[in-house]
Amino acid sequence: MEKSEEKPGWRKGNFYVNPYLGGLMLGLVLLATFYITGRGLGASGAVKNTVVTTVHTLAPAHAESSHYYSKFLSTNTQPMNNWLVFEVLGVLAGAFLSGLIYNRLNFRIEHSPKITSRRRLIFAFAGGMLFGFGSQLARGCTSGAALSGMAVLSAAGFITMMAIFGTAYVFAYILRKNWI
């Protein structure tokens, strides 16, 4: 039985909402976020906050003397800095709920049949490292800089979006054997 031959059904694990409808829903969530909080959505900021808090706990003097960590320490008591951590907890819950409804919850390593799981995991980890590094330089990732930036017509949002997608097209071609 070829699983991929099955027609999509919303309980079969291969059903996705129409991309334009999904985009409209995502846009409305983003609009509501700006309307309520005056800021957009984010993702990498929550990881940054985790790193800053961990380093500050383990090596307070080092964090306070660092030009980078100290930028975020002074505001650590303000709710806005923790906002993204709560938001990401919501992201995990929301995605889990969607996975539950559409029957997609299972532990697996997703990769092209042409590469090994080991190769996939190494590239996933290295890709995450680069994405994390770049997100700090650009002051946000695809969510916080590109998508949320574009929603308020921030020039940085458009520049970062074009840099991410343009570079990804080039490197996707170079790394095509990993994916197709």
């Binding site: 290295a126 680069l130 994405f131 590094f133 770049g134 990732c141 695809t142 080039v170 994916w179």
Partner: peptide, 10 residues
Amino acid sequence: IMGMGFAMGG
């Protein structure tokens, strides 16, 4: 840098 990470990590 993020674009490179995107193509590597997916």
